[in-house]
């Protein structure tokens, strides 16, 4: 049973990852990533990591994907850019790099003896065990992530707020008003001169 679930989830994960990379429409890519995330959560459940699998679905599929879909909808058809003007040698090099990574890792992994998986108790992978590790051994990493998330939130607000008009000092405002006043005076002076030119007799 577990073997069937593993191969099904692995197949779905790889197919959906290919969809993410190959689709032209970013909306379809995002939906492919959603399938990839759920398949990976299934694989994590097979590895007895219930809490990480749940967090994967809630945080990634819930929060991050909603953000992605929102921005893709905001950008609209401008986001649709295919591989386009990539030169053939660039495509070949990229695929060769990917294949090299795969062959290297697969060769190492299948020629190494990892031994038997260690035995685990019922608490393994639950929120209790993971949470305890977080607040004891990995407290610094935990706090670091919270600081980074806060910085990212501030950065997102600043980037999303866009370019606002520059704030001027009082002197700059007065200078601008003075320029405008001078322009108005010049314009009315020019108008009066023109009127005098048009009817010289009446003006004298």
């Amino acid at each position: 049973m577990g073997i069937v679930v593993f191969f099904l989830a692995a197949f779905l994960a790889i197919v959906s990852a290919l969809a993410v990379v190959s689709q032209r429409n970013p909306f379809v890519s995002a939906l492919g990533l959603l399938g990839n995330l759920v398949s990976l959560a299934t694989l994590m459940l097979l590895l007895d990591a219930q809490f990480v699998a749940a967090a994967q679905v809630i945080v990634y599929a819930g929060a991050i994907m909603v953000m992605f879909l929102f921005v893709i909808a905001y950008v609209g058809p401008r986001g649709e850019i295919g591989p386009g003007t990539r030169k053939p040698w660039q495509v070949v090099l990229a695929v060769v790099a990917g294949l090299l990574v795969v062959t290297q890792i697969v060769l190492v992994v299948w020629t190494t003896d990892f031994g038997k998986p260690s035995s685990i108790d019922d608490a393994f992978g639950g929120p209790g065990a993971v949470g305890q590790a977080f607040v004891t051994d990995y407290l610094l990493a935990f706090e670091g992530v919270s600081v980074i998330l806060f910085m990212a939130a501030v950065a997102g607000v600043i980037l999303g707020a866009g370019a606002r008009p520059k704030r001027l000092t009082t002197d700059q405002v007065l200078a601008k008003e003075g320029e405008a006043e001078a322009r108005r005076r010049a314009a009315s002076r020019a108008a009066i001169e023109a009127a005098r030119e048009a009817e010289p007799g009446e003006a004298r």
């Binding site: 993410v20 990379v21 990229a94 695929v95 790099a97 294949l99 990574v101 795969v102 890792i105």
Partner: peptide
């Protein structure tokens, strides 16, 4: 590894 390579190519 396969998923990593697919993402890398993307």
């Amino acid at each position: 590894a396969i998923l990593f390579a697919i993402g890398l190519v993307g």
